[in-house]
Simulated scan of single mutants.
Amino acid sequence: MTLSVQFITMISMITGGIYLGMALDTFRRFQRHWKHNVFFLYFMEISFWLTQTFILYYTLYSVNAGELRVYVFVACLLGFATYQALLSNLYKRILERIISIILRIYQFFTKLLQWTVVAPIKYIFRLLFASVILLFNTILIVIGFTLKVLFLPIKWIAMLVYRLLPKKIKLFLHHLAGFCSKIQNICKRCLTYITSKWR
């Protein structure tokens, strides 16, 4: 291995050590989101270190064909120590700033999507449902009016017959009418409840 290759290897490993420090701080920053899940915590920890090992070795392989020497590890530790001593606090502040900006952009686009897509769709569905309910009520009113007109003569005849019935039959018919009225009120309340939920 020539001196130039050794020099480039040391610079690359020092840079790799600095990168490793940045990656570790980034990983620790996001670790709080899964630290309560033990299985996922171990999975992420193992995956992180395997990934960093692969990246550093790939860097070394690109520089000196993957030849490991003692000074390679020393250079990597030197870069990591330099980052921890000089750059860690600065990088953490920059990282928090970047995360804050990304969260604000995400919140902006979430609200934009809510107001431009979700809200109009919900309004259209509510409008359609209200139109269906209105049409249904109109049909019921028309049918009810038609039935009243058609059965008005029958009602007159029934009233005449009702007056001629015995008191026991009249009492039974009175209770039956009360029961039917209760069922009708329950149906009206259910329809009103369903309608209010979609407003």
Rank of each mutant, 00 (worst) to 15 (best):
A119L: 12
L103F: 06
A130P: 00
F109K: 03
V161M: 13
R163Q: 11
A158T: 10
I94M: 08
F108M: 05
P153D: 05
Y162E: 11
T138M: 04
I143E: 09
L95S: 05
I143V: 13
T110L: 09
T116W: 15
K155A: 14
F136V: 01
Y106V: 10
L103C: 02
I98A: 04
F125Y: 13
I98E: 05
G144L: 03
P120H: 05
L150H: 06
I102M: 04
L160A: 12
L150G: 05
L152V: 04
R97T: 11
R97Q: 12
L127N: 04
R163N: 12
L150M: 09
I98W: 01
I157V: 14
V161S: 14
R126K: 13
L128E: 10
K155Y: 13
F151S: 05
V118F: 11
V149T: 07
K155R: 14
Y162H: 09
Y123H: 15
L103H: 07
I154A: 09
L134Y: 08
F145G: 08
V117H: 02
L160S: 15
I139Y: 12
F109W: 11
R163S: 08
S131Q: 09
F136S: 12
I121P: 00
A119E: 11
V132R: 05
I99M: 04
I124Q: 04
Q107S: 09
T110G: 13
E96T: 06
L152Y: 14
V142E: 06
K122V: 15
I98P: 10
L113T: 08
F151D: 00
E96M: 08
I157P: 00
S100Y: 03
I121F: 14
L147N: 03
R97E: 14
V142I: 13
I102E: 02
S131M: 05
F145I: 10
F108N: 03
L147P: 01
